[in-house]
Design a protein around this nucleic acid. Structure first.
Length: 821
DNA sequence: GTAAAGACTTGGAATAATATTG
DNA sequence: CAATATTATTCCAAGTCTTTAC
């Protein structure tokens, strides 16, 4: 970071500086006379302050507005409001960002939507309370285990004979679970099971035990000291990617095919595979790649004529890889099966570790293959060649008495250590940024689970201190000492806006900042009390937020930005994360800046969840959940690029809605024909919704006609075979029987329901276009809040936690519905 | 006390797997 | 049943924060 600011802010004490450094006098004057300021705003209770802040924050307030709208919408079940253009109702925060963003971000291929399950609302057939209480025994005895296994086996043998013999009980469990989900809620077309319901129910309980009997229930007895992570540790070491094998395809240089030794060819491949993506166009990427390409050439093939990037033609290679991709896609089932099996074998061997005699899953047991470094944002090293890692540079961490895994043939391990104060199994140093890479246990492992648990407990601990901390920093906002004042202001932002701490970074990485590393140009003031943040945060994701702050904070920023400070200078020149965290430790043991993010995320989530309507449908509950999740994601600024075809997707759904509406209109017209008096009772009948234009009707009718014709053709085909006479469209019309009022009403209701569901989906999808929910769900929201919510509102946990989340959070799902974060 | 090393969490994108649709 | 859409998983970069070295 620039140290220029350092030159005029050298000493610690304000008073000293005032004497020694004339440039600071102005600043100090303000600091002193601002002593008299009082900040009435900060006297407002914390809980209210947050909402207050939200309502003044553009992005958040927009979202809240939508919330209100949707809530009223879903409860009143009127669909008219959806006719309003969606864009108006959405927080346009992101779109403006995209335009303003000086650094181009990659465009994503595809958008993801929230998991708004279009499933029926029927509840699980087992009472939730009961299911929860089937807490398994701590250690199920071997005999019981095999007994259960047998039972399951007999139960599902019929359909999955093959699998059950070769696979772990895990697989069987999965099966039953799928089945369960099906009969629970999914009106899924797939009904692959013929097993009897009774059997299933029995299996459910057994399965539960079976599933957890091997689980180490560390959360039952917490241990205080966790500096020792394990006593025994066995594993197979990491898995190395296969050596490069030449494909014999030649790239061209100056139009001529050129021979490359495998080492060079491999590097050329890396670039060839990036052509057609943004990386291929990125000048820094190209430059770095080519520099390293030349380096490899010089070393491995000095007589190679390649000198200039412009004369290189990688397209033959690119084509080859496209071809390969297609081939892979076109593989037969059997071929795919073989590959899958090989993959499974590797996983079986390397994917597990024995930690204190317990089998635990290894997360990333694969050594990263060589390639071109894909640094994000404007990373100066993007495109740099990442070397192949050999065992010689890998350190193995393993138990003293454990068998040391065999390194790949002809190789030796770099180092073997037995450090039980760390959790990694293997480690190596990567060449691009000189950083370490580790092999760790998976997210569902006990070690990870324990620290996850600790993290949330720490955040809950903060809850006890937050009042005092807020009081203190509010006071310190007016402190005479510049350093203190900066610290307080920074903390205010970290607390209110969930900013990251903001460590200082070198200049060989992308220029991104967090709170402590904010610079002059990242914060602008707008009288009377608006602060505009605009900077690139982690992963070069833009943070843009307009916030109304207290007078004191506004004033402070004004002071911190005062000349001679200019663009490029640190806003908080007296502060860094070490100072801040040291201060925080005083308020609470182990407190650091990041805990605020966890705390505020979980707390916000819990508060937002209170908006769930008790007796709403499953879809509505899930929408409420997602919405709470989304508020947290917005708070934490978890973004994703809007997919290219997002608007197409919306249009398609809107079209579906219109179609349904039109169909409903047609039905209602028939109803009126049957009973004209209905119009009085239900004036909405026979009314055409807005948005249904003549063009729409025309295209709809055309499509319908097409369908009818197609059906007719099919029918006639059959009739031909049967020797019956052929029909015409008119015949078909005639054949339709006159529907009864009852039938029509039913149709009408079905369509209404469908429309509503589609609209919920539409809103959810659009609200979500630029927000990534995953990160907050995985890392910031205490899973116990989610679990408690599920129990309280009778939502099966599977609806909100997928398999890996359930596994990761298995320590959390045992809370009762009264859990409070 | 400061910088570098080290270990761990957090983050979005890429890719694989699965579900839905035409 | 193939094409497409959606969701889950994997990948690995980029943060935070602690410890160690000087």
């Amino acid at each position: 970071m620039s140290n220029s600011d350092q030159s005029y802010f050298d000493s610690e004490e304000e008073i000293q500086e005032q004497e020694n450094n004339p440039e600071l006098i102005k600043t100090n004057e303000i600091v002193e006379d601002s002593d008299s300021d009082s900040d009435s705003e900060d006297d407002v209770p914390i809980s209210q302050r947050r909402t207050k802040l939200n309502s003044t924050t553009s992005s958040i307030s927009d979202a809240t507005l939508i919330n209100d709208k949707i809530n009223s919408h879903s409860s009143s079940s009127s669909d008219s409001d959806s006719d309003q253009p969606l864009s108006k109702r959405m927080p346009n925060n992101n779109s403006s960002q995209k335009i303003l963003d000086p650094k181009k971000r990659k465009i994503k291929k595809e958008s993801k939507t929230t998991a708004t399950n279009e499933s029926s609302d029927s509840e699980d057939d087992i009472a939730l309370s009961k299911r929860r209480k089937t807490t398994p025994l701590k250690k199920v005895k071997k005999e019981i285990k095999t007994e259960i296994k047998k039972e399951i086996e007999t139960e599902i043998k019929r359909e999955i004979k093959r699998e059950i013999k070769t696979e772990e009980p895990k697989k069987a469990t999965k099966r039953t679970r799928v089945k369960k989900e099906e009969d629970d809620e999914k009106p899924s077309k797939k009904k692959k099971t013929t097993a009897k319901v009774k059997e299933e129910k029995v299996s459910k309980k057994k399965k539960k035990e079976e599933e957890e009997d091997e689980v180490f229930r560390w959360w039952d007895n917490e241990k205080e000291d966790d500096s020792i992570k394990w006593t025994t540790l066995e594993h197979q070491g990491p898995y190395f990617p296969p050596e490069y094998v030449s494909h014999g395809i030649k790239m061209k240089y100056k139009g001529e095919p050129i021979d490359l030794v495998p080492e060079c060819e491999e590097v050329a491949n890396f670039y060839a595979q990036v052509i057609g993506t943004d990386w291929g166009e990125n000048p820094t990427f190209r430059k770095n790649f080519f520099k390293d390409f030349l380096k490899v050439i010089k070393k491995k093939q000095p007589n190679c004529p390649i000198k200039k990037f412009e004369d290189c033609d990688f397209t033959p290679l690119t084509e080859y890889f496209t071809e390969q991709k297609e081939k892979r896609k076109a593989m037969t089932k059997e071929e795919k099966e073989v590959i899958k099996k090989e993959k499974q074998e590797i996983e079986d061997k390397y994917g597990w570790a024995l930690l204190d005699e317990r089998k635990e899953k290894v997360g990333n047991f694969r050594i990263e293959p060589p390639g071109l470094f894909r640094g994000r944002g404007e990373h100066p090293k993007t495109g740099t060649l990442k070397y192949r890692v050999y065992p010689e540079s890998v350190t193995i961490n393993i138990g003293k008495n454990a068998k040391i895994p065999e390194p790949p043939e002809g190789h030796k391990w770099g180092k073997i250590i037995h450090d039980n104060t760390v959790t990694w199994l293997a480690m190596w140093k990567e060449n691009v940024n000189d950083s370490f890479k580790y092999v760790w246990l998976a997210a569902g492992s006990s070690l990870k689970g324990q620290s996850d648990f600790k993290k949330f407990e720490k955040a809950r601990e903060l809850k006890k201190h937050i009042g005092k901390i807020r009081e203190e920093y509010t006071l310190e906002l007016k402190d005479k000492l510049m350093a203190t004042r900066q610290r307080a202001t920074a903390l205010y932002f970290i607390d209110k806006l969930a900013l990251r701490a903001g460590n200082e970074k070198g200049d060989d990485v992308a220029d991104t900042v967090g709170c402590c590393s904010l610079r002059y140009e990242h914060v602008t003031l707008e009288p009377p009390n608006r602060v505009i943040f605009d900077f690139l945060g982690k992963d070069s994701i833009r943070y843009y937020n307009e916030v109304e702050v207290s007078k004191q904070v506004y004033k402070n920023i004004e002071i911190f930005k005062r000349a001679p400070k200019k663009e490029g200078d640190m806003l908080f020149d007296r502060l860094n994360t070490t100072i801040l965290n040291k201060y925080l430790q005083k308020s609470m043991k182990g407190l650091t800046a990041k805990v605020f993010r966890t705390y505020n995320a979980s707390y916000t989530f819990q508060e937002e969840l209170k908006k769930t309507v008790k007796n709403s449908t499953m879809n509505e509950k899930l929408l409420a959940y997602n919405r709470a999740n989304r508020q947290v994601a917005i708070l934490c600024n978890h973004q994703r690029a809007v997919s290219k075809n997002h608007s197409d997707q919306l249009k398609r759904i809107q079209d579906k809605i219109l179609t349904s509406k039109y169909q409903r209109y047609l039905v209602s017209k028939e109803m009126l024909e049957l009973d004209p008096t209905l119009k009085k009772k239900k004036p909405e009948l026979g009314r055409l919704s807005r948005g249904i234009t003549k063009e729409f009707i025309k295209s709809y009718e055309e499509k319908e006609l097409e369908k009818k014709k197609a059906k007719l053709e099919r029918d006639n085909e059959k009739r031909k075979i049967d020797g019956k006479e052929l029909l015409t469209l008119e015949d078909m019309e005639k054949a339709k029987r006159q529907p009864s009022m009852e039938r029509l009403q039913k149709q009408y209701d079905t369509l209404s329901k469908r429309i509503k569901a589609q609209q919920v989906l539409l809103i959810d999808k659009d609200e979500n276009k630029a927000t990534a929910l995953g990160t907050s769900k995985i890392n910031y929201i205490d899973p116990r809040i989610s679990a408690a919510w599920c129990y309280k509102y009778d939502v099966p946990i599977e609806k909100i936690f997928n398999k890996s989340l359930r596994n990761k959070f298995k320590w959390a799902v045992e809370v009762d519905e009264n859990f409070v974060f």
